[in-house]
Amino acid sequence: MAWSAENATKAFLRTLKLGNKAAEPDVAAFVSALAAGSGSRLLVDVPAGPAGPTMLALLTAAQQTGGRAACIVRGPEELRASIEFLGPEHAARVNLVVGDAARLLLGGGGLGGADFVLVDCRLENHARVFGAAQASAAEAGGGFVVVRNAALCDLPAVDGSGRGLRVDLLPIGGGLRVCRVPTAARRSQWVVRVDECTGEEHVFRITSPRKKWIEA
């Protein structure tokens, strides 16, 4: 992932200008700058309730990178509250989806391959969503999975040794767990084909993506 300081700065400043809607300016500005600076193309917010300031932050980043912003909520009540919070203009630019976040991140509803996912640790099934988000980012060719309110829950340590995975816990807001996910690892397989006419053997090396990811 190539880093763009210009995109990060612009997204950071635009998020700060959101004013009262950005009730968590440190968290919102940070995730907006991180998503924009890394050039994320599909940015997904998975809040514990309806969409909030962080969704606006990801929308700002998506506008900077030319990407798409989505928000996965649990039910119709959260959907209505999300639309009310975002307002008509912003709501029209966000793909608001109701459903199982883990399933959707693994390919359902066109949200597979998200390269930036923000998960609220107050979600009842946050560990499952965290694992699915890592798989989604890996399949996208690498990306970020950020857990907010990380200080409020007991997520097990993630061992990224040998996988290129980097995890940092930052004292921002209720704690941000930033997980940089590399591209999906690939395994090699040798295939031998015999030319029926000449009898010559041809050896090919093919790769296939591994479907494993690190569970939280």
Rank of each mutant, 00 (worst) to 15 (best):
C71T: 14
T183L: 06
G143N: 02
E24Y: 12
A185K: 11
R80K: 08
L170W: 13
A70Y: 07
D159I: 15
A140T: 14
D120Q: 11
A157L: 10
T198V: 05
N149S: 03
V117Y: 08
H126P: 04
S161G: 04
R68N: 05
D154N: 12
G107V: 07
Q63K: 15
P50D: 03
G19E: 03
Q134Y: 11
R103I: 10
P88N: 09
P47R: 12
G113L: 08
G160W: 06
F30R: 11
A150Y: 12
H126E: 02
R41E: 00
V73Y: 04
R193V: 13
F30C: 01
F85K: 13
G110W: 12
D159C: 05
W190D: 02
R210A: 00
S188Y: 14
A185L: 04
D100A: 03
A102H: 06
V158N: 01
G75C: 07
G175Y: 06
G87Y: 07
N125A: 06
K212Q: 11
D154Y: 14
A69Q: 02
A11G: 04
V117H: 09
V178M: 03
L96K: 09
V31T: 08
C179S: 10
E201D: 05
N7V: 08
A23Q: 12
A91I: 14
V167F: 00
G75E: 04
V119K: 05
F30E: 03
A36H: 08
G52R: 15
W190A: 09
E78D: 10
P209H: 13
A216C: 07
G175C: 03
R128K: 15
A140R: 08
G99R: 09
S32W: 11
P182R: 15
K10F: 05
C153P: 12
G141Q: 06
V181P: 03
F144R: 14
E6C: 06
P25Q: 04
R148Q: 05
L176C: 01
E6T: 12
E78Q: 13
G37C: 04
A138K: 11
M55F: 14
F116N: 07
V147P: 00
L96I: 13
L155Y: 13
I214G: 00
K17T: 14
A35V: 09
G173W: 11
S208Y: 14
K21S: 02
R14G: 01
V167A: 03
K212C: 01
T54V: 00
E139T: 14
P47F: 08
M55E: 09
K211R: 12
K17W: 14
L42Y: 10
